[in-house]
């Protein structure tokens, strides 16, 4: 089993963070993982994206190039940039709160998640990224939600323990959002 997911959005939406969480969760489950960011000036304020691979075998190319199995897009520029990187049948998870157009491709599975509204319901707009990640994990079952929460403490530090319940709620809310096909 190999998941190649692109995560993309505005800088500040926590794109890199959910990528790291997924990679770390995969590692905790003894899977082979890689996390590759876009870097340089592109990072500063503009769009941010990273490629995460979680696999049962050694990761070949850490780049995702027309062979993505999934993409999480949190803003409009990311949709147009990355929908073409998916294989036919790949999963495209769209943040409906900020993207009001449909993808051009018809040969992929598309899921809409109103991440910002759902985050607002939880009282914290910052967890929109976790809602998207929750949706992705639900759709692929590539890692356990618990592994993501375990990874959360590894990536952000034990002093963030108090934020675990909120992030767990966000992951579950995201998962719930895609259980019924949008």
């Amino acid at each position: 089993m190999e998941e190649k997911v692109i995560m993309a959005g505005f800088g500040g939406q926590g794109i890199m963070a959910i990528g790291k969480l997924l990679a770390y969760a995969g590692m905790l489950e003894d899977k082979q993982v890689s996390w590759l960011p876009s870097y340089g000036p592109e990072m500063r304020g503009g769009t941010a994206n990273c490629a995460v691979i979680v696999s049962d075998e050694a990761v070949g190319s850490p780049l995702i190039s027309k062979d993505g199995t999934a993409a999480i897009v949190m803003n409009l520029p990311s949709l147009s940039k990355f929908e073409n990187e998916l294989v036919p049948g790949g999963k495209l998870i769209i943040n409906k709160s900020l993207i009001d157009v449909e993808p051009k491709r018809k040969d992929i599975e598309v899921y809409y998640v109103s991440a910002n509204e759902l985050a607002a319901e939880l009282g914290n707009p910052k967890v929109a990224n976790m809602i998207m990640l929750g949706a992705y994990v639900e759709l692929t079952k590539i890692v356990e939600i618990d592994s993501v929460l375990h990874a959360f403490l590894k990536v952000f530090g034990e002093n963030k323990t108090h934020l675990v319940p909120l992030n767990k709620d966000a992951l579950l809310k995201g998962a719930e959002a895609v259980k019924v096909r949008a």
């Binding site: 993982v33 890689s34 996390w35 590759l36 870097y39 850490p62 780049l63």
Partner: peptide
């Protein structure tokens, strides 16, 4: 190379 420098792995 830059990719090795920037990417994360276990």
């Amino acid at each position: 190379d830059g990719m090795i420098g920037q990417m994360m792995e276990a």
